[in-house]
């Protein structure tokens, strides 16, 4: 009887429970660092998210998989806890107690930020693709779409018939965006006035990446989460609608 084997089997079999312990330890350690090193100035949840990303990097290097630590058998439960189903469930729950008036007051700004956000990210991606020597409209559109979010990229790419390398590149661009939003939001929140429902809705509409917005706002002020998530949730859909149609036509006109 190998004691490590027994522990290993139990932890793997009860993956979701193991993930509670794993995340609990990260959060505890992060708040400890936040209090001791920054006297609470840098939010504990921001540190926890950063640590999560570091672990995800290490997990990816160790296993060669795409799911961060969730590819390590022992921690496969993290994949369920941090997956889209529970994340979306918790996001919906944050809406409980939101004031309708706050939503209405920022409605127009929220909707315009959605259209501006999708167009801005798309054209940034498209221009970078052009600078790096892409000359066919399909590849340029796909990379632009990936910069919108890592869902819009492959959806657009497969609709237009882009090559698999270009689709992989578009996913990477979306990943970079989502991770930078996670890291950048708590650092920049103060300077851009991200401290009220109105700017949170605009933030959600401009950034659009669900995971980036969810993590970014959690690290700034959890009360703002529902407002940002509300607009962000329409972003990927709008991107999937615009990128293969109007935005592709614009690119095709130029090329």
């Amino acid at each position: 009887m190998d004691i490590f084997e027994i522990i290993n089997t139990v932890l793997s079999k009860n993956g979701l429970i193991t993930s509670f312990v794993f995340v609990g330890c990260i959060v505890w350690f992060s708040y400890f660092l936040s209090n001791k090193l920054t006297r609470g100035k840098f939010h504990g949840s921001a540190i926890a998210i950063l640590l999560g990303l570091v672990f995800a990097y290490l997990g990816g290097t160790y296993t060669g998989g795409k799911q961060g630590v969730a590819d390590i058998g022992l921690l496969s439960g993290v994949g369920l806890l941090g997956g889209a189903m529970l994340r979306d469930f918790a996001i919906v729950a944050t809406a409980y107690g939101v004031k309708l008036d706050d939503l209405k007051a920022s409605g127009i700004a929220g909707v315009s930020s959605l259209f501006i956000g999708v167009a801005l990210s798309f054209f940034v991606g498209a221009i970078v693709a052009i600078i790096f020597g892409y000359t066919d409209a399909i590849s340029i559109t796909t990379i632009g779409a990936g910069t919108v979010t890592f869902v819009v990229g492959p959806v657009t790419g497969s609709a237009l018939g882009a090559s698999s390398e270009v689709i992989a590149l578009s996913i990477a661009a979306g990943l970079v965006k989502s991770i930078l939003v996670m890291i950048g939001t708590p650092l920049l929140a103060k300077y851009i006035g991200l401290n009220n429902p109105n700017s949170a809705m605009i933030f959600g509409g401009l950034m659009g990446t669900n995971s980036g917005v969810a993590a970014g706002l959690a690290a700034v002020d959890p009360k703002l989460v529902p407002y940002g998530a509300m607009t962000a949730t329409f972003y990927t859909g709008l991107g999937c609608l615009l990128a293969p149609s109007i935005l592709f036509l614009i690119i095709e006109l130029v090329y």
Partner: peptide, 18 residues
């Protein structure tokens, strides 16, 4: 429980891929 879920989400991102 939202923030812990987000921490778990961060831990399963494809950082290497990015």
């Amino acid at each position: 429980i939202y923030i812990p879920i987000v921490v778990a989400m961060a831990s399963k991102q494809n950082v290497l891929g990015a």
